[in-house]
Amino acid sequence: MEVISFLIPISLFLGAVGLIAFVYTVRSNQYDDPEGDARRILNDEWDDKPKP
């Protein structure tokens, strides 16, 4: 059963990574325009180089 001393911290760490990633998306306004962002990805305007 020693294995759980690794497994529990690892699972908590992975969960926390997910939570932090979600918090980051909320704080950087990524849910402000879900419809527009879904369409923008189909845009081929800045495919070659990033938008300046």
């Binding site: 926390a16 939570l19 932090i20 918090v23 980051y24 704080r27 950087s28 306004n29």
Partner: peptide
């Protein structure tokens, strides 16, 4: 939750 966030500021509107 915010303390744990990377220090990157929110995308400036």
């Amino acid at each position: 939750g915010c303390v744990a966030t990377p220090t990157e500021p929110a995308r400036p509107i």
